[in-house]
């Protein structure tokens, strides 16, 4: 039973290796018009030297709002789980 599990996992790793052969090589991502637009226009449109901050808070601001909400919900959930019982 254990050996069957490890065989399945090795097959899974082989599948991953088979997948990454067909990806583009690291360092040559090909045409990326969106990122070229961000790098070219981030300074004049958002005034930010840091393109990552410009993408994170301006171009993809809704994404960051959801991310902050997820962190808020996780902190609230942890506080809810660890609450003290009042009646004991």
């Amino acid at each position: 039973m254990e050996s069957l599990r490890y065989t399945v996992l090795l097959a899974f790793a082989g599948l991953l290796l088979l997948t990454i052969i067909y990806l583009h090589p690291v360092g040559f991502p090909g045409d990326a018009p969106m990122d070229e637009y961000f790098i070219r226009n981030s300074q004049s449109e958002t005034g930010s030297n840091n393109v990552v901050t410009g993408v994170l808070f301006d171009y993809r601001g809704l994404d960051t709002l959801g991310e902050a909400s997820v962190l808020f919900a996780a902190a609230s959930g942890v506080m809810l789980l660890f609450r003290r019982k009042k009646n004991e």
Binding site: T46, G47, F57
Partner: peptide, 24 residues
Amino acid sequence: NSGGVLPLMNLAVGIEVFAAITAI
């Protein structure tokens, strides 16, 4: 002095992350 609203948003998110991780 550049950046528009990005420093304000950074400040708000920084406060939120600080309080959230400290609370956890």
